[in-house]
Design a protein around this nucleic acid. Structure first.
Lengths: 177, 177
DNA sequence: ACCTGAACACCGTTCAAGT
DNA sequence: ACCTGAACACCGTTCAAGT
């Protein structure tokens, strides 16, 4: 009925989205290191180089997945009620919960496999998510600018240690109080 | 003069060591993701599958490099003087300095590319390094066991954010005070 | 024992066609 | 425009020989 199909449309619908969804399933199943472009194409039912119509490279596809991860993290942080009291701790718990529940995304986002500077949208999504944490710490009477960074680093450190299986999730949640 | 050559000796000397040294150079030059076994073999001047005499797999070689990384980290922490005062902060600075100066190792050690549980020597080296931090925090009047974990997580979080280029090294050092 | 060459089943990426 | 098949230059890993 609409006069023009959505951009990126192909005979199956929206290949760009279909590829991303297939990639997300593979990421969750096997992790980023095992994610191959050819398998993504197979899962989407297209030839092994059809993805190049939509992604410049394997790195670019991973960067889009990581960007999606930061968007999800941001959404979780946005959902934390602005109690002003306890808000920083609640944000910390939300960050930790994201790491535990979306481990493959967290590992991709911080795993060092993607050079963020090469993908502006990714760098931007990361900054947007962090801004929420910074804002909350500053609002909570943080005069020292280093305090926001310490709060973020503490939560990020706990999350990363959990995701790397160096400490159990319960210990991390307990450490947050 | 000795009756037997060192185990693992071959016509060039010690291939195991030669392969590890070549791998370390490649790790530092290009990162773990780009490290291929075949290139390691070429750099060591042997055929592309000679490494299988010394390492069960590419993962196993990376695990040995990561173990070496944790040993280096431990040595740095061992070097921190036991001032009891200020000791925790000094250990934090040493940890951060390691992350900055040995970035490729740090990324490999915490990059999620190696499943630590599959390599006991690696898991052990990691625990040994952490025990130093825990001991210092506990010695410094830490009644709360969560305090040691928070101290470690803060330092680790700062180090990881630096290595991931999310914050500049100076900011991390400043946050440690 | 230690090393080699050939082989297998993959990759990411490129290119010349096809519709 | 979008997709395909063939091709290039690689991988990790295995195997049957060679010394």
């Amino acid at each position: 009925m609409s006069t023009s199909p959505p951009s990126g449309a192909y005979h199956h619908g929206d290949l760009h989205r279909a590829l991303l969804e297939a990639a997300a399933r593979l990421l969750i199943a096997n992790g980023a290191a095992a994610l191959t472009l050819r398998e993504v194409a197979r899962a989407a039912g297209v030839s092994h180089n059809a993805p190049y119509r939509h992604f410049a490279s394997r790195q670019a596809l991973l960067a889009e997945l990581a960007t999606e991860g930061f968007d999800r993290l941001r959404r979780r942080l946005d959902d934390v009620a602005p109690l002003t009291e306890e808000r920083v701790r609640a944000l910390g718990r939300a960050y930790l919960r994201f790491a535990v529940e979306e481990r493959p995304y967290f590992l991709l986002m911080f795993g060092g496999e993607i050079e963020k500077s090469a993908f502006p949208a990714l760098a931007n999504a990361a900054l947007t998510a962090y801004a929420i944490l910074e804002g909350a710490v500053e609002a909570e009477g943080g005069r020292d600018p280093g305090e926001a960074l310490r709060a973020w680093a503490l939560v990020h450190g706990l999350a990363h240690l959990v995701v790397e299986r160096q400490i159990p999730p319960e210990a991390a949640f307990a450490a947050l109080g």
